[in-house]
Design a protein around this nucleic acid. Structure first.
Lengths: 179, 179
DNA sequence: TGGGTCATGTAACCTGTTACATGATTAG
DNA sequence: CTAATCATGTAACAGGTTACATGACCCA
């Protein structure tokens, strides 16, 4: 349910057509969220029905006509409340989208979101190392050939959590250093 | 299309019922892939239709009857070919599942999969730093309040790619150190 | 003359999510 | 008596993917 919010975020920068949104998406959010052109048009229609957007047809002679979308007040409210709500986004793509648009909320709220993210990753770490890996507990095979790979996957989880924690700490520092 | 392959991987360890697969999934693969109980039953049905599995009903008196699933030769072939094919899995959950079950393929093939993963992350890194961030190029707003957050999201991408590269290198070393 | 940009979509499909349904047995 | 465990699912919905369609204009 996040493509809609990505589009809200982009439209918050100014009115755009589906075509322009598609391109904007592909040069900005595309790294962590791939959107299909066809889906963008579909979502825009639904969002207009929801009352988050209004559209206006711009007639052109040399080029095909286009539909300019604009955020409504409801749309802005929806964007802000989505930015503030911290659902433990897994995988992290949804969370990254929140960060990407966090310029729209107060710095302190953004810091809270980052701290919550850090805390989530810390508890994941504990689960992965502290309690011992469930893998060992469940013991579906004692075959070392298999356990090597299970451990590699678990190691990835640990490395990922560490990376997230470090990044979040850095991010908080950066935000705190600027007034 | 990967829950099916996760189930294939688990059934490769031995025959199981949907109920047991559900539990096995939740203590092992759950960290990077959440499967719904209802979906597991649905996929099992489809997989049987595909010819990847056969089932046998076990009648019980004290407990409800159960349906034991078993891999067919086609199922095993499908599992192996899925493990070997390296589609640039984004996000990484699908890739991690491949690693989790890599005990089923030869060590050298697993190393190849890891090296390809590393290479993909290296090219992501280049895109993110080298060419300069598209964000700056596209310049939707010169407002520094926004660019801070765009850069934070991009930093995450960089940190993530670094982490993946380091982990993959370590993993290759581990595999190469054991004969 | 062929390919790129502008600009819109539809239809079918696949996968995942949420909510609900059933019903016996067993342990606290 | 109540909650958990065993064991199976169905139905409806939401969201993402793939393939296809249209048509004019411009540049090499």
């Amino acid at each position: 349910m996040s493509l809609k919010h990505g589009l809200l975020g982009l439209l918050n920068y100014g009115t755009m057509t589906g075509y322009e949104l598609d391109k904007a998406f592909k040069v900005s959010l595309n790294f962590f969220w791939q959107a299909q052109t066809s889906q963008i048009y579909r979502e825009l229609k639904e969002m207009e029905k929801c009352g988050w957007l209004t559209s206006e047809i711009v007639y052109q002679t040399e080029k095909p006509n286009k539909k300019l979308y604009q955020l409504t007040e409801e749309g802005k409210t929806e964007l802000r409340s989505w930015l503030l709500q911290d659902s433990g986004d897994t995988p992290h793509s949804q969370f990254l989208m929140r960060i990407f648009f966090a310029g729209e909320i107060e710095k302190n709220s953004a810091i809270d979101v980052l701290k919550a993210f850090k805390a989530r990753n810390e508890s994941t770490l504990l689960q992965l190392k502290g309690t011992g890996r469930n893998i060992d507990k469940y013991q579906m095979a004692t075959d070392s050939n298999k356990t090597i790979y299970w451990n590699l996957a678990a190691d990835y989880g640990v490395a990922n959590a560490h990376m997230c924690i470090r990044w979040a700490e850095e991010a908080v520092k950066i935000l705190e250093s600027i007034l």
